[in-house]
Design a protein around this nucleic acid. Structure first.
Lengths: 136, 136
DNA sequence: CTATTTGATAGAAATAATTACTAATTACAT
DNA sequence: ATGTAATTAGTAATTATTTCTATCAAATAG
């Protein structure tokens, strides 16, 4: 019943972690797969999924659920929020630190035991802003 | 090419809307399907999906994306946040109105054009709190 | 009132994203 | 170096959702 947590640092796991930390985007599992197979052509999509899952479970990376059909991943585990472009799905970072304790505020309103919050924004990325302008 | 917006109030659509407004939970499409087929045994899962989509697109209900694998729906379209139980997935309402303009704050930090925000909490629902207590 | 067109339905099939299975391989402690 | 449990590639299966198709019913035209 104990969590053994024997994490082996395989080549695949290492490359996945390195690559995710390198990019400033927030790739989906498939994005990662496409990126990775350039360096490691025989890597399998299942391996990418499994490792992203394992790495996020052990808190080494972050799994994002910012809307849209696919999960995304972030190598930056510091506290920050995200914006998602409603047109193209691109996800960017935003550093907004709420000026008061949202969890405490929320705790007053519910019988759930509150652990943490997630603040996310929706908007238009620079590229899609330009496209909109061109169309009008 | 114009948005005609001809919404026919069919029996199925009506029952879906009524049922969603009646419950205080935040059912998935399949939850709805299971609930609805008790009243309307021949209703199709596709119809449930399509109508929840149509109703949320026209702003009559809300489509939620609070994590987990399935989308959820909310008949309450007033501004409010949600908590999701990390154990069972149950979703509850929380009325926290941030005391300052989060969008404006975020806009300073990004070149995305910010439209709106979404604030969500994670925690343990009352039922799972009890289960945890019993186990310890 | 009857015909037409338009939107909606049930049921099945298709697609997309993710997870599970299996035999072969590999990292790592001894 | 060797044993063994973890991990892999490749494939199959599953899950959630969307699309397709033939049919049906309401609304509108004549």
């Amino acid at each position: 019943m104990e969590a053994k947590n024997k994490l082996r640092m395989t080549k695949q796991r290492q490359v996945i972690l390195e690559e995710l930390r390198k990019v400033k985007t927030h790739p989906t599992a498939d994005d990662m797969y496409q990126m990775l197979r350039k360096k490691m052509p025989k890597i399998s999509l299942g391996t990418v999924y499994r490792n992203l899952e394992i790495l996020s479970e052990s808190g080494i990376i972050q799994k994002l659920d910012v809307g849209g059909t696919q999960k995304r991943f972030d190598g930056d585990i510091t506290i920050h929020s995200h914006v998602r472009c409603i047109d193209c799905g691109r996800v960017g970072d935003i550093d907004v630190t709420p000026k008061y304790n949202l969890e405490a505020e929320a705790q007053k309103m519910t019988d759930f035991m509150i652990f943490r919050h997630r603040l996310e924004f929706t908007g238009l990325c620079p590229i899609c802003q330009h496209k909109k302008k061109a169309t009008s």
